[in-house]
Design a protein around this nucleic acid. Structure first.
Length: 865
RNA sequence: GGGCGCGUAGCUCAGUGGGAGAGCGCUCGCUUCACACGCGAGAAGUCGCAAGUUCAAUCCUUGCCGUGCCCACCA
């Protein structure tokens, strides 16, 4: 840095995000801008962060989600609300436990069961501190205006009390129960999983057909899981299936064992599939379990929790996949394999955390009875008490909530909320609340709760529930929830279930704003295996947080996935630089926010125009915020700032700034427009706007500045029309100059007719000088406004090029006239089309005729040659 | 199998029953006194295909093709 202390420039020549973002953020936090005040007279506006899992670091999707929330809350704050954006993290029970186990295996070579439970949990807390801290640091880098004084964690004391309280309430209401059913079991993580923690994938397997029994009493069944036959307790056929009618009620010998099993009839069977006969393994298949229950069949468990065969015999001790191979081999040897289809493509469920093939397992677990809760959750949305944005995603919500099955909430894990049920030595069970003490000698259930159980309480547990706190009364229901559509089922639905239940029918949030997934530049899903994952922090380091935020919001169409690419971020960074230079120019030229802005009638030319445009834009931005249309908000402000303010207004201001009479008004308008523009952009790009706004206005912080108000009285149609006419002339002449190969710097003499007060502006923008002595007309240009411009090109004009271009214009105008005249000639059109449409077509014919006129005149004015 | 969505410029995406748009990329020109992370000019699309409704279809309806997602089932 070689800048001298007397450097007259109020701003350095370039914005350096890395140097200013950190200090700016810490100042905002220290000054308490983000701290909610329940005693404030302002209206409350609240939202809770979807708590990131403490499994690692933030990804680009978090950056998008938090950019949206930050924009929403910063604007709400500027609009005069008492804003609470509550931050926190989720303990992510199975997610973290899996990672900790993996970490311990790598570092200490030990498994989970090599540690006492308490020690394992201790190690998990160490993990939480490490990665949780990383996540919080990333949120600060992004600029999240969260209330750090209210940060929560799903496993902290208060939230644990909330979990225990609602568990007991549900238990007492008979909405939580314990039952033995088939659940999804991960043989590696050794825990039950809910349906949505299982990912299904089409995979090649085998379908083998096996003959059970012999001779006339035999029946052929097909299976993809031959090893489960060891636990078969029946064969079922469809009751109407003529092929097997004679066998129903008889028994058949189960191969490889000495057991006789019944052949039964059940509606579940599809006679058209396979042989129409199904083997039934009630302990290892959910459908078979239901069949078994209907017919009172025994359920034989033939595997242990690690999916190793326990059924006595030659297969005992084999893993399920080894057993499958061995069982088929043994059957083949017995001549019982009738058919084999391999590969056979079918859907296989995998543990969403460790990818192990899940094993349906008969198991005693805790369940939430969802029927009544789900009905209330559906009603709340149907009745409009909760609004889903975009509305097009509401069917997804209903599809889920209306087909919800009871929720398995117990997990055979250690990291999480332990189930608050105790058992007496006699085996009785009872649930105890946070302030109750179980009788001596009773022991607590070993299992913990599904991580989503505590997440479901997040909108009110974080505010102090079950205590009747000031925060809870003021900030519940929360105003808006921002989250990905992919989490609708996991989280949003469950918050609805529990929120309505715990809060006596009060919804957890008034609006759900759903965003899509951030994908790579060609629209592919980001994944570690593809190697196309981008780390938002790397981009923040290189281009600044504002650039990353803006590039993400620029693509954020409601509920839709978006592609992201480094080039997008570069473009967003460039926009920040543009703003920087525009503000720098304004300040170097005495832009001011002091004093009253001259009234609408007192402004002239470009000053009146840009103020008018500003107020239109403010109104449009407000309307777009109401629908959370971030991509459109960015588009609108981007083009207003770049095209209108920078490309046109600043250039026109250069003219008036040189005029002693007009300069003062322009300095004030410059200050006014940039002040408002920076406020409008602040929720999107907080750092650069803060730097520029404080420099421009001398104000304390744009964070606490007022959001601009659109004033219809400031809209000046006359001023807009005048500048539009000027723009038409300037564009036309620029095209002429470019076609003619005239250097931008070359000053060209020209004579105007018909442009009036804007002539000086046009001359300045176009570098046209007054005609001097000996001005000889060599070319004339007329424009749509009836303006005529004559050039003295001293023979330098490329007449052939100009003639070609004019011929092209002529053809376009002729076509335009023909097309629209034809419409007017169509009686059906003039009779049935709305008057406004007909009038518009008439106008287009008139415009085309005028264009024809001027192009012909221009052609005629061309010198021969 | 059920449901939802998408197919618009080279790429990523907006959009509307009545004149096809943006960003990036591309071409040409420019050290024009805020900015080359810039300025100016320009090229580029049978709006997936077909039929229908309509005075009028990129937009509405139906079918087809392609593509993505969600749910269920897959013995």
């Amino acid at each position: 840095m070689t800048e001298s202390a007397s450097d007259p420039e109020p701003l350095p020549s370039q914005f350096r995000p890395a140097e200013v973002e950190g200090p700016l953020y810490e100042r905002w936090v220290e000054r308490g801008y983000f701290t909610a005040d329940p005693h404030s007279a302002k209206p409350p506006f609240s939202l809770v962060i979807p708590p990131p899992n403490v499994t690692g670091s933030l990804h680009i999707g978090h950056a998008l989600e938090q950019s949206m929330m930050d924009a929403i809350t910063r604007r709400a704050r500027m609009r005069g609300s008492d804003v609470l954006w509550l931050p926190g993290m989720d303990h992510a029970s199975i997610g973290v436990q899996t990672l900790v186990e993996r970490h311990l295996a790598e570092t200490e070579g030990k498994g989970r069961f090599d540690y006492p439970r308490a020690e394992f949990i201790e190690k998990s807390w160490v993990w939480k501190e490490r990665y949780g801290g990383q996540i919080l640091a990333q949120m600060r880098r992004l600029g999240d205006g969260v209330d750090w004084s209210r940060e929560r964690f799903t496993l902290d004391d208060g939230l644990s009390q909330a979990v225990q309280t609602i568990f007991k309430r549900l238990y007492d209401d008979d909405l939580i129960y314990r039952a033995e059913r088939i659940i999804n079991w991960c043989p590696r993580d050794l825990t039950a999983l809910s349906d949505i923690e299982v990912d299904h994938a089409e995979e090649p397997g085998e379908l083998v057909s096996i003959r059970y029994g012999d001779g006339a009493a035999s029946i052929v069944v097909a299976t993809t899981r031959a090893e489960t036959m060891l636990g078969d307790t029946a064969v079922v056929v469809h009751p109407d299936d003529e092929r097997y009618r004679h066998l129903v009620g008889t028994e058949v010998a189960l191969p490889l064992t000495n057991r006789m099993i019944p052949i039964l009839a059940d509606e579940h069977v599809d006679p058209a599939f396979g042989t129409g006969a199904v083997k039934v393994t009630p302990a290892h298949d959910p459908n078979d379990f239901e069949i078994g229950r209907r017919h009172g069949l025994p359920a034989l468990t033939i595997m242990n929790e690690r999916a190793v065969i326990t059924a006595p015999g030659p297969f005992a001790g084999l893993d399920r996949l080894e057993a499958r191979y061995s069982v088929v081999a043994a059957l083949r040897e017995d001549g019982r394999i009738v058919a084999e289809k391999r590969p056979y493509l079918h859907s296989v469920g995998h543990c969403s955390k460790c990818d192990t093939i899940v094993e349906p397992r008969l198991s005693l677990q805790w369940w939430v009875r969802v029927e009544t809760l789900a009905r209330a959750a559906a009603d709340a949305v149907r009745e409009g008490r909760v609004v889903i944005e975009p509305a097009s995603l509401a069917p997804r919500y209903f599809q889920w909530v209306e087909n919800l099955r009871d929720w398995c909430i117990s997990r055979q894990l250690w990291w999480g909320h332990r189930i608050p049920v105790w058992y007496s030595p006699d085996g009785d069970d009872a649930c105890f609340g946070p302030d109750e003490t179980p009788p001596a000698g009773w022991t607590q259930d070993e299992d913990v709760l599904d991580t989503w159980f505590s997440s479901a309480l997040w909108p009110f547990s974080t505010l102090g529930w079950p205590a009747d706190t000031e925060d809870l009364r003021r900030y519940y229901p929360t105003t808006v929830l921002v989250t990905g559509y992919d989490i609708l089922f996991f989280w949003v639905v469950r918050m609805m279930l529990f929120g309505l239940y715990a809060m006596d029918g009060a919804v957890p949030f008034e609006t759900v704003v759903l965003h899509g997934l951030v994908r790579d530049s060609s629209g592919k899903k980001m994944s570690k295996s593809r190697g196309n994952v981008v780390d938002p922090l790397l981009w923040i380091d290189e281009y600044g947080a504002d650039a990353v935020r803006l590039s993400l919001l620029q693509g954020a169409n409601p509920g839709a996935d978006q592609a992201i690419n480094e080039e997008w971020v570069v473009g967003a960074r460039n926009f920040g630089t543009k703003l920087w230079n525009a503000t720098r120019f304004a300040m170097l030229n005495g832009a001011t926010v002091e004093g009253e802005l001259p009234g609408a009638g007192a402004l002239t030319g470009a000053d009146a125009w840009i103020v008018s445009r500003l107020h239109r834009v403010i109104a449009q931005v407000d309307a777009l915020y109401d629908r959370f249309e971030f991509a459109k908000i960015v588009d609108l402000l981007y083009h207003f700032a770049w095209d209108e303010v920078c490309d046109w207004y600043l250039e026109l201001a250069k003219v008036t700034l040189a005029d002693t009479e007009l300069a003062q008004a322009t300095r004030r308008v410059l200050g006014e427009v940039l002040d408002a523009l920076l406020r409008l952009l602040h929720p999107l790009i907080p750092f650069v706007t803060e730097t520029l706004w404080t420099a421009l206005t001398g104000g304390e912080s744009v964070v606490i500045a007022a959001w601009p108000t659109g004033d219809p009285a400031r809209v000046d149609r006359g001023a807009e029309a005048a500048i539009e006419a000027l723009q038409a002339v300037v564009n036309e002449v620029r095209r002429f100059r470019s076609d003619q190969g005239l250097r931008p710097s070359q000053r060209v003499p020209a004579r105007f007719a018909g442009l009036g007060a804007s002539e000086r502006d046009a001359r300045a923008l176009l570098r046209l000088t007054e005609p001097g002595e000996g001005f000889a007309r060599t070319a004339a240009l007329t424009t749509a406004g009836g303006v005529r411009i004559e050039f003295d090109l001293s023979g330098a004009i490329d007449i052939a090029a100009e003639r070609t271009r004019l011929a092209k214009d002529l053809a376009a105008a002729e076509k335009e006239k023909a097309v629209n005249s034809a419409k007017l000639g169509n009686a059906a059109f003039t009779a049935k089309a709305p008057d406004a449409v007909v009038a518009k077509v008439r106008e287009r014919v008139a415009t085309a005729e005028a264009d024809l006129e001027r192009v012909r005149a221009a052609l005629a004015a061309l010198p021969p040659g």
